[in-house]
Amino acid sequence: MKRRAIIIGLMLCILASGALIAAGQSETPADYPTRNVSFLIPYNAGGGTDSLMRLLANAMEQDLGKSLVITNRAGGLGQVGLTELSAAKADGYTIGALSNLDHILVLLTGENVAYGYDSFEYLGAINTTANVLYANDANTGFKSVDDVVAYAKEHPGELTVSISGKTHIAEIALFEKAAGIDLTTVMQGSGNDSLAAVLGGHVDMALMDKNFVAQVQGMGVTPIVSFSADHISPIEDMPTLKDLGYDVATETYRVVVAPKGTPEEICQKLTDCMERVSSDPAFQEKMAGMSENYRWLDADAVKARLDQDYAMVEELLQEVPDAFN
C-alpha cells in the first residue's frame, strides 16, 4: 500500500517536471504570452496608480489572450515592489508599473536601493496629470500666484502649505527656488488629508492633484496655479507656473516597466499592445470617467521624458542639497 503511494507520487513528480521542462523549451518570444503574466503594482489597491493600471491590465489581457495577474506590493514610494520586480526573471512574465517622480526620488534620495535607473525596460505610459496649488480663501484671500509670491516675500516662512508625499517636497522646493520665496510645508499622510486641512483652514494652501478642483468648488478654497507645463483637462484655462514665468514644470505619469533584459521582441509586443488598447476611444472614455488624462508615450518617448525629470530633480538636489531633510 505504502509502496504504491510512493510510486504514484514519484510518477507525478516526473510528470510535473516533464511538463515544466516542456513548457520551458517551447517558449519563444514570438509565442509570447503562453501563460499568465504577473503584473506588480508597487502601490496599494484602490490608489491612483492601482486604479489606472487595473483598467489597463484588464484591456491588455483581452488583447493578449492571457491574464495579467495583479499583485500589490506597496511601500517606500514604490521601492518595496520595484525591488521585487527588478529581481524577477526577465522573461516577460513579470512586469510592473511605477510613477515617474516617486521612482526618480527613490533612485536619487532613497536608502539601500537595490536597483538602478537602468534596471528596467520602460515600455510606455498612458496618462499625465498635474498638481495644482490651492489657497484657503478665509486665511489668505489669494487669487493668483502674484498674491502668493508678494505675501511670501514679505512674510518668509509664514505661509503653510499642505503636501502629501516626497514628490511634493520637490515640487514646492522647485517653486520656492524659482520665485525666491520661503514657504512652510506641512506633510500629510495623503491627498485627502491635505484636502481636509486646507478646507478646514488649518493650513493656508495645499498642493494637490488637479482632480480636487471640482471637489473644492464652493468650499472656500481657490485653485491658484497648475504646476504642469501642459494645459490639460479639466484645467485648460488655469495658468501654469511656466506661463507666468516661473521655471517649474512637473507632471505625474504611470509607466509600465519590465525587468532589464526582457527580450526586446516581448517588450515591443507589450508596448504595441498598450498602444493598441489605449487608443480605443472606449478605453479613453473610461479613463476620462476616472478623471485620468490620456497621453500616449511609447518606449522611447517615455525614456526621454523620464530623463528630463531625472535631470530636473538632480539639479534641484545640487542646488538645494537638504531639500529632503
Binding site: G46, F212, Q217, G218
Partner: peptide, 27 residues
C-alpha cells in the same frame, strides 16, 4: 460630502466610486 475618507476601508471604497466616474465631494 467632501471626498475625504473617514477610515482605511472607506478610502478603498473611494477608489470604487472614482472608477465609476463618481467624484466624491460636494457635487
Amino acid at each position: 460630502s467632501l471626498g475625504i475618507p473617514g477610515s482605511a476601508t472607506s478610502a478603498i471604497i473611494f477608489g470604487a466610486l472614482t472608477v465609476h466616474g463618481m467624484i466624491p465631494g460636494p457635487k
